[in-house]
Simulated scan of single mutants.
Amino acid sequence: MKKIKIHPLIIVALFINTLGNGFSAYRLSDDDRTAAITLAVLCLFTLTLAVYGIIRNRKINEE
């Protein structure tokens, strides 16, 4: 089965989403701890997806 690369714009969008979630979590850290923790977890999750996408695309290019 042919492996499909993840489009670079999707990876860029994930990084932008990571920044947005991180800034929102920082902004809400004083007012609402639950929302800040939720956004921080989402920030880490989207960052993980973006890094995984970069690594996956590099492995596909090497094959």
Results as ranks from 00 to 15, higher is better:
L42N: 12
G53S: 00
V51R: 00
L44D: 01
I11D: 00
V41K: 12
L47K: 02
I54H: 01
A35N: 15
L49H: 12
T18K: 12
L19M: 02
T18F: 14
N17D: 15
T48I: 13
V51C: 00
T46W: 11
D32A: 07
I55G: 01
L47S: 05
A35M: 08
L28H: 13
S24R: 08
N17H: 12
D30F: 07
A25E: 02
L28A: 11
A50R: 11
D31V: 02
L14E: 03
L19D: 03
R27T: 02
G22L: 13
L44I: 07
D31Y: 06
L42W: 14
I55N: 12
G22C: 07
A40G: 07
T46L: 08
A25R: 05
Y52V: 15
V12H: 08
A25Y: 05
D30N: 09
I11T: 02
I37C: 04
V12C: 15
I16T: 07
A13S: 13
V12I: 11
L14P: 10
R27I: 01
F15T: 11
F45G: 06
S29K: 08
I11K: 08
S29D: 06
I37S: 03
T34C: 03
A36K: 03
L44M: 08
N17C: 12
A40Q: 11
A36R: 04
I54Y: 09
D31L: 04
G53L: 08
I16E: 09
T48E: 15
D31F: 01
A50S: 12
L42Q: 07
L14W: 04
F23M: 08
V12W: 15
Y26W: 13
V41S: 04
L44C: 10
N17L: 13
L14T: 06
I55P: 10
A36G: 04
L47C: 05
V12L: 14
F15E: 10
L28V: 09
A50M: 06
Y26L: 01
T34K: 08
F45Y: 12
V12T: 14
F45S: 13
S24L: 08
T46M: 14
C43I: 00
G20T: 03
I55D: 03
